[in-house]
Design a protein around this nucleic acid. Structure first.
Lengths: 122, 122
DNA sequence: TCCAGTACTTACTTTCAAGTAACTACCTTA
DNA sequence: TAAGGTAGTTACTTGAAAGTAAGTACTGGA
């Protein structure tokens, strides 16, 4: 029997960690191929990306669609349930933006590249 | 120069990790003493609790008030800025509750003890 | 006088998520 | 025929976060 004291514990298990909320954030802008995700998430390794995607799939947030073709083409998208999780990711994003602004005003040497990573580079 | 691709990265730095969102959640119900927090956050060690509180204080989310008396009495509360972060914690809590319900309906052997940890045990 | 409780600090250890790198297997293009 | 791109897997290593345990310093109560 698994016990949770607060709802937030379950949330952290599912979208906690370094990468999952970023993946959800990117998938909100539409279906993405594996390689697209990897290019757009700075610093993630292929192993970790795929591992995180599989976990999100297992938890019902992400759908994996394999095109039966060569060369391989695999597409990931959010499920309906995954979209509900985006509510969280959304407030985290906007709170984070505000936080960065505040720290910039304080004189910290930081930038938000913002959305560059979301756009497809031509 | 520190670079963020998405606002969410800054958020994760500040309230990410295993314990910080739980601490914020508890502090939303009012001022708390160190020992109260420790009793109410199941499994946290004193070292880690104090460490997390100091980091939250450094980031401006938590206020630490030391009563000049013996035996020592230290109280922690959320700052105004800390209260803004509670928006995030709030959606995480409610999403997590929903998640637990769904998994219970699926037959998973889990419970949400919910709010027991928030109340002062007499 | 000793134990319990307050709020810490310090030192050391463990764990596990993430990182690194190499490998498979297939196709297309040069 | 060799390189580059697709989507992975596997094995091993690293490092930061967290856990463990003990010590400090003070007071109040049995």
């Amino acid at each position: 029997m698994k016990r949770y004291n607060l709802g937030i514990e379950a949330t952290l298990e599912i979208i906690g960690g370094k990468w999952k909320s970023l993946i959800i954030c990117l998938l909100m802008s539409g279906v993405k191929r594996t390689s697209e995700l990897q290019r757009n998430i700075h610093g993630i390794s292929q192993k970790v990306l795929i591992q995180q995607l599989r976990e999100l799939e297992k938890d019902g947030l992400v759908r994996r669609y394999v095109h039966q073709q060569m060369p391989p083409k695999v597409e990931y998208s959010l499920t309906e349930y995954g979209v509900t999780a985006n509510k969280i990711v959304d407030v985290m994003c906007s709170w984070g933006k505000e936080n960065i602004k505040i720290r910039q005003q304080r004189g910290e040497d930081i930038v938000l590249l913002e959305d560059e990573s979301l756009e497809d580079k031509k």
